[in-house]
Design a protein around this nucleic acid. Structure first.
Length: 486
DNA sequence: AATAATGATTATGG
DNA sequence: CCATAATCATTATT
């Protein structure tokens, strides 16, 4: 990329300057040496004209030098090499060279950079750690993009989560690949450049004193420069990863509403466990599974346990916060599950005769599919009768019968079939409906709106008080039906 | 376009 | 670690 171009340019310009420098040095050295009669077998053109005693001669001399300088670039490389060789072979050269080395050593110019290297640059370390944590710099895992693509393709109906995840991973591997190729390129360029410089220095060390330390220092400088560039790369990679992360993993950006069926199921559970809407881990798993398979074949998003947890968390808090807003919904689901309960209870009663106490679930299990359909209309009629049928408010003399009949049915099932805990939820639901409507019936002012059993005054669901004892909720409303059992 | 609904996250406390 | 409450950011609805 741009960087390598830059490097190439640097290299070129550096070599150019060094070559030029070498040639200039040679020529000038030649001239000056010639001027001071230290000249050996050099192929320099002898300064013509008289020895500059007067201005004219000096001018001539200077002009000559200038001419040489100006024509340096016209000299062929071979010519220059030849001159260089000549200079190197000069008999005085070793002596002069050692003198120069000594002088340089004394001036201490060569050793002046023995300070750095130790601080590992905390920022760079931070970047490295981040890249490592993000899986960009670490060991190649999963075979890179191919694996990600395969996962995306093969997932099929597996999970929408995995699709997004693999998408994310594909992008991540892309970033990782870019990062690695760039890094490698930098490394290579750095090495190339280093060897180039070292060669140059070695070459020059024949003409001017260059200590190994100096070379080392040079290499250190180069490496620092390159590592700073690498840090830039790492930084931008980190940035890219962070952007990708926020784009893909922050699920809030890709929120998808649950399907109708899923919310149905969740609501059903919620309202039928209103006294203690805290599904256990298993219950959550089951709910998640059920929600996921309702739309199974489609691309319907699968719902995870944590999503169920989220849902219940949100539901609880929102329900509690504004119970009035959820009344309608509560009634709806309560009635619905009540109908289910009635059907199930009937089935249970039927079954209880033939079946031993085995699997009390079986009676209820079927409600999923069989009742779902046929309860649709009965539910609707029930609802319209119950709540919307009469005048706007819920004073309903006839619906009381409805509840009572249902309640008695339920009671039957409870006693006859011994369905235990499972029935409990249905009872819960029924109680909800009953107490609800009763509360309205009593017209005890708006604030007495049916506080759900278990939702105490402080606003917390107190411990599942599973009122297995009887159906009467708390107070007055319960009395309406408590004695009408026959 | 304004607003409500809603799934997810964050902060806090037990 | 889980529940709650507040909040965020997206999606649905008006």
């Amino acid at each position: 990329m741009s960087f390598s171009i830059c490097v190439a340019q640097c290299t070129d310009s550096l070599s150019a300057t060094m070559d030029d420098q070498a040639r200039i040095m040679q020529s000038i050295g030649g001239v000056s040496l010639a001027g001071h009669s230290v000249q050996g077998g050099m192929a320099l053109p002898p300064p013509h004209g008289h020895d500059g005693t007067d201005g004219d001669g000096r001018k001539q001399d200077i002009g000559d030098i200038l001419h040489q300088i100006m024509t340096i670039t016209d000299q062929s490389l071979d010519e220059a090499q030849a001159k260089k060789h000549g200079l190197n072979c000069h008999r005085m050269k070793p002596a002069l060279f050692s003198v120069l080395c000594e002088i340089k050593e004394k001036t201490g110019l060569s050793i002046r950079g023995a300070q750095e290297e130790d601080p590992p640059d905390p920022q760079l370390m931070r970047l490295d750690n981040m890249l490592l944590a993000e899986g960009v710099a670490g060991p190649e895992k999963g075979g890179g993009s191919a694996a990600a693509a395969a996962a995306a393709a093969a997932s099929g109906g597996a999970a929408d989560n995995s699709i997004e995840h693999s998408d994310y991973r594909a992008k991540l591997t892309q970033i990782r690949q870019i990062y690695h190729t760039e890094l490698e390129k930098y490394e290579q360029a750095c090495n190339e450049f280093t060897t180039h410089v070292m060669n140059l220095l070695r070459e020059q060390s024949r003409t001017r004193p260059i200590s190994p330390k100096e070379i080392e220092r040079m290499v250190g400088i180069i490496h620092r420069k390159f590592s700073s560039i690498q840090m830039q790369l790492k930084q931008s990679t980190c940035e890219a990863v962070m952007i990708l992360r926020s784009r893909f993993l922050d699920a809030r950006r890709k929120r998808r509403n649950f399907s109708k069926q899923a919310t149905e199921i969740l609501n059903e559970y919620f309202y039928s466990h209103l006294s203690n809407p805290y599904p256990s881990e298993e219950a959550k798993e089951e709910l998640a599974k059920k929600c996921s398979i309702t739309v199974s074949q489609g691309v319907g998003s699968t719902i995870t346990v944590s999503q169920v947890s989220n849902w219940f968390g949100n539901k609880r808090i929102r329900y509690k916060k504004n119970i009035g807003k959820f009344q309608e919904e509560a009634n709806l689901y309560a009635a619905k599950t009540a109908v289910n309960a009635a059907h199930a209870a009937a089935a249970a009663v039927q079954n209880s005769q033939a079946n031993s106490p085995t699997t009390p679930n079986s009676g209820f299990q079927m409600k999923d599919e069989e009742f779902q359909l046929d309860s649709a209309e009965s539910k609707n009629t029930l609802l319209s009768n119950m709540f919307t049928g009469s005048s706007g408010s819920f004073n309903l003399p006839n619906s009381g019968d409805m509840f009572l009949s249902m309640q008695s049915l339920n009671g039957d099932s409870y006693q006859g079939a011994q369905v235990g805990a499972n029935v409990q939820s249905q009872v819960d639901t029924l109680r909800h409906v009953i107490s609800q409507t009763a509360g309205y019936n009593d017209a005890l002012g708006g604030n007495t709106m049916y506080s759900p059993h278990g939702l105490n005054a402080n606003g917390g669901w107190q411990d599942a008080t599973t009122p297995s004892s009887v159906i009467s909720p708390t107070e007055g409303p319960g009395s309406v039906h408590s004695d009408t059992s026959n």
